[in-house]
């Protein structure tokens, strides 16, 4: 356990020493918040709409932190000889993998701060302390399938491919999952399609927690299904990678 924390700490140190990477992760969701929510009084000035938008953007921040940190981060690490050196130290792969996940979680939490601040200062979004606690927990759980997706990409692709793949998956999934525009504005066909996406499923869970309403049956099932599928993919990608490079 202490080695896992050690690895997490050094992962974190390595990441924050490249400020632009931090700004990208932490700054983008807040920027989107300004562009789509604050600048639009019909959303930002309306308590219900603003709260919804803040919740959706928080989820986007968490998902994007996980996918970039793990997708690109793992792909980058794999290419470094240092990664091989770590395997000669008296420690198993769990500490490193766990440290990576913990580090990604730190950045996911960090990226929530500017979104929350923007929502509080410049919009009429509101939530009780209980709702905030519930939504924080929901956000952490909601990030899980995307952490797995990031790992699957990171362990399957070289860095140059991992970054565009993360981008190509993230933005369309975020849009179609209702993270930029609420799904009530979707045409019927998109709404139907949307329900099958992991982004939509976890969005419904997060918004349910934020507005203190039950999310229904479909969203938890779809979220659990995606978590299982992506978790399996991550494990397979990890094993195949070890198999290919370290036979």
């Amino acid at each position: 356990m202490s080695l896992l924390l050690l690895h997490a700490r050094y992962q974190f140190l390595e990441t924050i020493r490249v400020p632009i990477a931090v700004i990208g992760t932490v700054g983008f969701p807040a920027l989107f918040m300004l562009l789509f929510v604050v600048s639009n009084p019909a959303v930002g000035g309306e308590p219900a709409a603003a709260t919804l938008a803040a919740g959706q953007m928080s989820l986007f921040a968490v998902i994007s932190a996980y996918m970039f940190n793990l997708g690109a981060g793992v792909a980058e690490d794999r290419a470094k000889p240092w990664h091989a050196h770590l395997r000669t130290l008296p420690v198993g792969p769990a500490a490193q993998l766990g440290g990576r996940l913990l580090n990604a979680q730190c950045f996911a939490l960090l990226s929530l701060i500017p979104v929350a601040l923007t929502a509080m200062l410049f919009t009429r979004a509101h939530a009780s302390a209980g709702e905030l606690a519930a939504v924080l927990l929901a956000l952490l759980l909601a990030g899980l399938p995307f952490a797995f997706m990031g790992l699957a990409i990171g362990y399957s692709l070289p860095l140059k491919a991992a970054i565009p793949v993360v981008q190509l998956l993230l933005l369309p999934m975020a849009f179609a999952g209702g993270l930029f525009l609420p799904p009530v504005l979707f045409p019927d066909w998109l709404d139907v399609l949307s329900h099958a996406l992991p982004t939509r499923a976890v969005r419904d869970l997060v918004i349910g927690a934020l507005t203190n309403t039950a999310p229904g049956v479909v969203a938890p099932l779809v979220a659990a299904g995606w978590t299982l599928v992506l978790g399996t993919l991550a494990v397979v990608a990890h094993r195949r990678d070890e198999g290919r490079r370290f036979r």
């Binding site: 140190l13 390595e14 490249v18 470094k80 240092w82 050196h85 008296p90 420690v91």
Partner: peptide, 24 residues
């Protein structure tokens, strides 16, 4: 891993984590 407790290996010089400090 336990069997590597008494082992010390040189990493490749090109592989040191660039952003970390020497003492770190």
């Amino acid at each position: 891993p336990r069997n590597r407790l008494g082992l010390g290996v040189t990493p490749q010089e090109t592989g040191l984590p660039e952003t970390l400090r020497v003492h770190e």
